[in-house]
Design a protein around this nucleic acid. Structure first.
Lengths: 157, 157
DNA sequence: AGAAATCCCGACTGACATAGTCAGGATTAT
DNA sequence: ATAATCCTGACTATGTCAGTCGGGATTTCT
């Protein structure tokens, strides 16, 4: 890995991997459960790590599991009804640039409340992020992907 | 500190403090340099830490320093010409949710380029964040703050 | 019944980033 | 000269992240 100049407002690899796994489940939607092993194989991700993420996503109600030999996971709802925000919230927690605009923020926790010049900014930022992430569904991601596949390779950016 | 349910897409305290320091410099704009000691006092932040941030902001060209007894820092441009994004970029680096949409991304670094379903999403997210942060200036922050001050306290949220 | 495939769970770990501290040097006003 | 200020680099403690590991539970297939 290249050191890579640090950047901010990242999503963790948890969210990233989680989303990739969910797009695989989307691809297999309606065809019975898909195993972690298969996801790991096609996405080149570590099995044990995916297992953890899958457990979270299941507890969060986005996927359901079937145990045993032909078991695996499947989306509990159609891909058009699951947003990227749903996924990110489950594996990373609420999206919020600072504590004082999180949903569970207890009014008064920040001593500077009232003299704070930037809370409005953080609120706008949070809303803006939430909007982008909630407007994109797993269905959209797969549709975009199909579009890319159908284009000739080497198309200039 | 309360454990606080983890959340994602955070800005670091570096960015947070840096911005608070910059709003102090904004308040003092046109009245000669303001010392780190004073910023630390009114914002209740550690002097030594602010010194580091100030050094970065100076190297980034947003503030200029005067040494010696009545020294301190002052904005190099009017507050209306400095955006929050300028500040965040200097102390935290570029804003980008994932590596592959960062400005200095070398095409081909990600093996999954071409089969990636979510790059479009991350691009939209990055743009959205950049927009919010670049549209708000230090001048705006202070104006909002003045507005809050003029309201009666105890106003329900 | 037994083997194999799968989910399930909690504990563990190494590397790195964050949020600072600290000691001391350089510059300037009084 | 002294004091206030900026300036720098090294240091450190804590926490998070990304991932591993060992073993258990459930189901299907033969």
């Amino acid at each position: 890995m290249v050191p890579a100049a640090s950047f901010s407002m990242r999503v963790s690899s948890k969210a990233h991997y989680g989303l990739r796994m969910m797009t695989e489940f989307t691809r297999g939607y309606g065809k019975g459960p898909m195993s972690i092993a298969e996801v790991a194989r096609v996405e080149h991700l570590p099995v044990a790590y995916l297992e953890q993420l899958a457990a979270q996503l299941r507890r969060g109600g986005l996927i359901e599991s079937t145990r045993g030999v032909h078991g695996g996971y499947a989306l509990t709802r159609p891909p058009e009804q699951i947003s990227v925000l749903d996924v990110v919230r489950i594996v990373e927690g609420e999206v919020s640039p600072v504590e004082c605009v999180a949903h569970d923020y207890v009014s008064g926790s920040c001593i500077r409340e009232g003299e704070c010049a930037s809370r409005g900014l953080w609120l706008r930022l949070k809303e803006s992020i939430d909007t982008v992430l909630s407007q994109t569904t797993l269905g959209d991601l797969l549709a975009d992907h199909a579009l890319i596949d159908s284009m000739a390779p080497g198309t200039p950016a």
